[in-house]
């Protein structure tokens, strides 16, 4: 396990990926909140136009402008078309107004010509931000957290600079693509975090993607296990429940002021059995992750409130900070 947030976030770009449905966006937001809470000027970037962050943080829709949504936490939603216009303006002095390309599906064309160019445009924007400096020479942001494509597409996404520079034989893009590839393969600048659930298929996919990311020359940080079921009973206690049986459970609950009907008492015993199975599986899969990847696992709990709010994100941010031995954003709060 890294020692403190300084070591965990000892990079300039944190790339957060994971299999669909594992809560990648939630984890990216929590990581960014943990970073911002530790005094880092942090930029959270989404590239898939999902508006995942604006929903959870209840802010207006994010767009192609960096805005401060929480103290120290900036947000940006990168769109490939905007990135292309900006790129062309920057390098070729072409003003957006002079373009009539939207009619001709220019981006479809460009991405047909050079597959991976769309990804390259998105990463290119992140690269531009990473290189940007404040007036005193410090980087524009201490940390950029990228909510990246899912594990199925992450390696082609991150390798797009390399693959485009193979297809594109000459021209300025080739040189730029090489610099971007340089940023991605430098462990001091870029680190990938794979988010998983402690379930069989996500763990299998995580192990494969950690290997594929390393193969692609990208440094990988601790695995972040999301929605981990917290232990409510030990294995022995689960056995005790089984031995007691529904009738006795209902009786004791009733004596304590919580009368259970037969169905609820039955459900309680089933839940306990499922819970014990789940905890055993989680432990087994955590071991498997450690053995196969050699990485530490940060476990984020499945929060069981009736709703999921910004406060829950702070709890997760806090958990991340505490997992590496630091105070989290909740430390100063009542």
């Amino acid at each position: 396990m890294p020692d403190g947030l300084d070591e965990l976030l000892g990079c300039r770009l944190a790339v957060v990926t994971g299999k669909g449905g594992v809560g990648k966006t939630t984890v990216a937001a929590s990581l960014a909140l943990a970073a911002a809470g530790s005094g880092r000027r942090t930029l959270l970037v989404e590239v898939e136009e999902r508006q995942g962050f604006s929903r959870t943080l209840r802010t207006p829709a994010w767009d192609y402008r960096e805005r401060e949504y929480r103290p120290g936490l900036f947000g940006l939603s990168v769109d490939a078309t905007d990135a292309m216009y900006e790129y062309l303006e920057m390098f070729y002095g072409l003003k957006r107004v002079s373009w009539v390309l939207s009619r001709t599906n220019a981006l479809d064309f460009v991405t047909t010509a050079a597959p991976g160019l769309r990804d390259l445009l998105l990463i290119g924007k992140v690269y531009e931000i990473e290189r940007r400096r404040r007036s005193d020479g410090r980087p524009a942001y201490d940390l950029i957290v990228l909510d990246a494509p899912p594990t199925g597409r992450i390696v082609p996404f991150l390798l797009s600079p390399t693959s485009v520079s193979e297809i594109v034989r000459v021209g300025p893009i080739k040189a730029q693509a090489r610099s971007i590839a340089g940023m991605l393969s430098d462990p001091a600048r870029t680190r990938a975090f794979v988010v998983t659930l402690l379930e069989e298929m996500p763990v299998t996919e995580t192990i494969q993607s950690v290997a594929a990311l390393r193969e692609a020359g990208i440094a990988v940080g601790p695995v972040i296990a999301n929605m981990v079921v917290r232990a409510r009973l030990s294995p022995d206690e689960a056995k005790t429940i089984h031995a007691l049986g529904p009738d006795r459970i209902a009786e004791r609950a009733s004596a304590a002021g919580a009368p259970l009907d037969a169905a609820t008492a039955e459900l309680a015993t089933e839940l306990v059995a499922a819970h014990a199975d789940r905890l055993a599986l989680q432990a087994e899969l955590t071991d498997e992750l450690t053995e196969s990847t050699g990485l530490a696992t940060i476990r984020l709990p499945l929060l069981t409130g009736e709703t999921f709010e910004e406060r829950d994100l702070l709890v997760l941010a806090d958990t991340i900070a505490r997992a590496v031995g630091d105070d989290g954003p909740l430390a100063d709060m009542p």
Partner: peptide, 9 residues
């Protein structure tokens, strides 16, 4: 054990 079962509910 019982407390855990009730909290699971």
């Amino acid at each position: 054990a019982l407390a855990g079962a009730l909290r699971l509910l």
